[in-house]
Design a binder for these strands. Structure first.
Length: 135
DNA sequence: GCCAACGTTGGC
DNA sequence: GCCAACGTTGGC
């Protein structure tokens, strides 16, 4: 089981939108690094849902319900989409600021490469952030 | 195959 | 709204 982090601008598609829709297709990714992560995702994997630009915080957890398939928004078969469902909303969102302030999380892609829209999260970072969200 | 120019993302 | 950081494109 792997852990991930997916980013979206809440004005475009927020975690609340996902809660309302029950399921969404994560398509339109046009970045190779992000695409490679999408391809590695397995059904049941979980991902932090991060709001970029507005909020700048991890607000919830989404789960993979359908593994990588041809992205319907393009004919180019090198791009893929993954389907997610909402798992749960975090009790307390974990802000980028809080992640940055936590030394053990300094190596996260969220901190080091803020532009990557799909990221991998280590198990220890995952557990750490979960703990922070409960506090 | 290198690298300058350009476009986009996202934090501030 | 600005701009740094990064990825992509395209000329050579």
């Amino acid at each position: 089981m792997n852990y991930w982090l997916i980013k979206s601008e809440p004005s475009v598609y927020s975690f609340d939108d996902l809660l309302r829709d029950k399921k969404t297709s994560w398509d339109g990714v046009r970045n190779y690094a992000a695409r490679n992560y999408l391809r590695q995702m397995k059904k049941g994997d979980q991902a932090f849902y991060y709001h970029s630009n507005e909020g700048m915080e991890i607000v919830g957890i989404a789960g993979v319900v359908k593994e990588a398939y041809q992205d319907a928004t393009t004919d180019n078969d090198q791009w893929v989409a993954v389907d997610f469902k909402p798992v749960k909303k975090l009790k307390n969102p974990v802000s980028l600021q809080a992640v940055k302030a936590e030394k053990s999380l300094a190596t996260m892609e969220l901190v080091k490469n803020s532009r990557l829209s799909v990221q991998k999260v280590s198990e220890s970072a995952w557990n750490k952030i979960l703990k922070m969200s409960e506090g």
